[in-house]
Nucleic acid binder design. Sequence first.
RNA 1: GCUGGAGUAGCUCAGUUGGCAGAGCACGUCCUUGGUAAGGACGGGGUCACGAGUUCAAUUCUCGUCUCCAGCUCCA
Length: 586
Amino acid sequence: MDLDTLRHSCSHIMAHAVKELWPDVKLAIGPAIEDGFYYDFDKSGPFSDDDLLKIEQKMRQIIAKDEQFLREELDKNSAIELFKKLKEDYKVELIQALPQDSVSIYRTGKSFLDLCRGPHIKSTGQIKAFKLLSVAGAYWHGIETNPMLQRIYGTCFNTQKELEAHLKNLDEAKLRDHRKLGPSLEFFDIYHKAAGAGLVFYHPKGALLRTIIEDYEKKEHLKRGYQIVITPHIMDVSLWKTSGHYDYYKDNMFILNALDEPAVNNGEAPGTSQGEFVLKPMNCPGHILIYKSKTRSYKDLPIRFFELGTVYRREKAGVLHGLLRVRGFTQDDAHIFCLPHQLRDEIEKIIEFVFETMEVFGFKEWGVELSTRPEKYIGSLDDWEKATAALEDALKDKGIPYEVNPGDGAFYGPKIDIKLKDALKRTWQCATIQCDFALPKRFDLAYIDAEGKEKQPVMLHRVLLGSLERFIGALIEHYKGELPLWLSPCQVLLIPIKDSVVEYAQGVKNKLEENNIRVDIDTRNDTLDKKIRNAELNKIPYCLILGEREAQQGMVSVRKKGSGNQGALLLDKFIEELINQIREHR
RNA sequence: GCUGGAGUAGCUCAGUUGGCAGAGCACGUCCUUGGUAAGGACGGGGUCACGAGUUCAAUUCUCGUCUCCAGCUCCA
């Protein structure tokens, strides 16, 4: 049975049940979605968890009756009359918006009918396995100013077994939640009371993880002809007016008043700032200023500036979510200034860089999307076409399948988004490549061409991991907190069995550290079993158990996370094997 | 920002129909010196999210604020 049809029918049965329990409720829409279905209702009070159980029960009764789904065609006007009589205002509105002359409705049982294009299953008895999951508010037509309806989510499968597997998968996702794992592994926390919401504090282990990631990225960027730059966290408001960010995102920027400061006169907007500064929400204007600091020749291009740039955005309270949406985060951000004919090659290089980086971090699958010009945009239509074509050509050149998101681009240019898929096949927005003719124009960027004439360079914005915060969240969930060896903040934990071997353990620690292995030592007064348990819970890749036997022979007893005792090895041998394994991992 | 739910020790959670606040883990001290996932005893730790109101008395009831959770809208 086609799952979409099954789920769509299941959502009708849910609406049927709701109408029987609460006849005054008005129906909105109820489609099948990925993994399930929902139906939006207009009801005066909220649905409680108990109500969900009641609805499920009623649905089971309707399913037990095995009522037929009967299709009827009606002309538009009589359909409008019918739904007006039923006081289904939302349905009336839907029908009025439909272009065709006739509409179809479906009846189930004596009492229930619904506007619907279909198709549906034959009868309600074909539903074998379903569950209602949650209630949430949702705007009518998804528009913020419209009334808020109540949406009930549910899911439905062909067999009970598949349903249970899906529910288990949902539980599995909960176990991987970075908001739980992150703090419990002492990677980070997100204080709310003392500091404010949406601000991340990296604890030593998380800061170490981030440092490892940053070091890797710096090295790779230098290798590929990028130059590392560092720009200020606050910059005069006039700069953001020039860039256009102020007009588009003023409400989402942190604006600092420093009225005792004299107005900045940067020659561009004299006197406009009156000592107002903006906490940077983007790194591009900073990089642009560096580009503009001297005359550039066509021979210098492409110029690739890379910055681990920390930006702040005043996100609405309701959108904050763990490490995925925060108010302060660090991007692995680069801006590439190039000649028009270099554009495609640069884009292709970036795409290769992205894919290689994803693989190094252990992500094997991804989806690619091309987003085009939005309603609010700057720049000329001609430039937008050129930019979009450049991105599209690069994707085609590389033979990369992609989907198009019309109108989803940035205000200054179209973009390619690369969404990686984790171990549970969930997608994470990380890399993005944006083509931009607009900012070079606004900032009057130039290079001198072979004939000595001033020309305008093209600019690419791109991030690989996106926000390091979000990426670390993705890593934690992908690996369930069990990071690969090369990323583990602590790679080896030394466990001396008793006080008399602590000195030996200290020697082992020094030796490992000389080989750049990250190592901790647990000298606390706990039993061996307890220390091993702690190491497992902290997801440390290797433990070395050190007692009299090992100390006498210069050996270490190796315990691998998840696979237990590996037996004893000479210390040198262990180090050799470990180093090989770290290399192999990436 | 919107709709709904929630907030008790560092963590996981009991509890008080309005009358001195509880457990396990974690932490500290002592005993124990161990061989591959929790050794034992004792102890410290709380403005019961915050602010008002009702009351002889509020962690408990009412209102407001903040934060978190499930979504919606948004995401340069």
